[in-house]
Design a protein around this nucleic acid. Sequence first.
RNA 1: GCCGGUGUAGCUCAGUUGGCGAGAGCGCCUGACUGUGGAUCAGGAGGUCUCCGGUUCAAAUCCGGACACCGGUACCA
Length: 476
Amino acid sequence: MADTVEPRTSRGLRDLLPAEMLARQWMIDTIRGVYELYGFVPIVTPAIEYLDVLRGSSAGSEAQQSIFTVRNPEKEELGLRFDLTVPLARVIAQYRDLPRPFRRYQVSPVWRADKPGPGRFREFTQFDLDSVGVESEIADTEIIAGMCDTLRALRVGPFRVRFSSRGILNSLLAYASLSAEQGADVFRVLDKLDKVGPEKVRLELTTGYVDASGDPIPGVGLSSEAVDKIERFLQIRSDDRREVVAQLRDLFAGVEGAEAEIAVVEKISNHLYSLGYGEDQVSLDLSIARGLAYYTGPVFEAILLDAPQFGSVFGGGRYDGLVMRFLGEKVPAVGASIGVDRLLAALVHLGKAGHQKSTAKVLITNMDPALADDYVAMTWELRRAEIPTELYLGTARGPGKQLKYADAWGVPIAVLYGSNEKEKGIVTLKDMDAGRQRAKALANRQEWLGERPGQREVPRDGLVAAVREMLDQIEA
RNA sequence: GCCGGUGUAGCUCAGUUGGCGAGAGCGCCUGACUGUGGAUCAGGAGGUCUCCGGUUCAAAUCCGGACACCGGUACCA
């Protein structure tokens, strides 16, 4: 016995088999369609970047251990990208002659060396779109509208895009007399509101608590007056975005800088109203904080109302400071990112994706080696008529095995052609699904064989037309 | 990182208080049925029982350790 290698994949990595790839490609194509309609352009950047590009020059000690590091022959310090935003900032800084605004999309895998969890992997794909170099809130509006259009195009069922703003949260800090440093912790905790509920958020903002597993969760150590003010802020909830804006103005009256931040959010909301994005699609939800530190303005995320357990499937915000790392100059930018894997998992869960198993619509079976020329001819005839067709190339001889093969791959139509058909100048078409349905009702094999469900004989020279007709019928 | 759980066939799992040649279902292969998927029936292939050490006449089973995976929780630029 020769030594063999055990086939396996490293932790947190997985293979995407055909059924999943087909669903994913459909999803990506659909999203791409929306963003090209909006006039975004594609780019791709290398998976591998210099470590200092990924980390930032100053951030030696920052908590960025989840980068996979990579060795090259020159022994340079390299790593796999962990998102698509940092490489975008690099591109903006590196290609100074790119016209701005630069509005691009990118769909690519990213890597994080975290502990994998349910629906969470070390290699996963993001679909990002960003507008770089636009100060106007119309860019933010465009991203939010695009999120709505994308989710509608994907037929995800009811969804909600929720947005807020870091500017408003900063006003909250001023209102509650908190420092910017405390702010980072506060935002992180607020982001968990949906998941853990208001009591635990209060505990985590003050003293901390011990969770069900006995793991102590440290508190942020805020005073109860500060937490009271935060809670008053969080109580502003309404489906009506205008109502939220009004209450916010009321609460933050006299807080320095607050009015300007509220005005930005109000403008976005009004643009969206005038475009027909009402409360059923977009809500102004002040509990949205987003975990990332680099956001500077509006932030947004989308959830599926029929699958809320999948969390945010699409999120983003404005980050006016990120390009500064490379250019030393402030370049405004706003964008959003779709977690392709998470959204796809949600769609499969909802039964809205993942049904297609094959690209071929027709399998030409191969029963008689003497007729090889006919099989090849029929195959290319169909292909040249733009009908995706596979010629059976395996070793099984009888039609039984070959039909089983068609069944296993979910090919909707099989073509049977042997000496009988050749003599009569016909081909036999078989609608696989019709047979599948019929099989449920039949217990006895003689009946099953005798009936030959879903089969039709058509003239050999009418093959293409007959297949097309049968496909139309199946797809209707 | 912390807490808990689980490692037995390709997959899902059963294996009683340790007891001779290690099981089931699904899947796969062959045949009944040499030109028809499903169903049924018969047969077949497929296992270092995660690994290392210990206890014992005897370990998949008990003990210790390692590793891996799963779930929860924390962190997440």
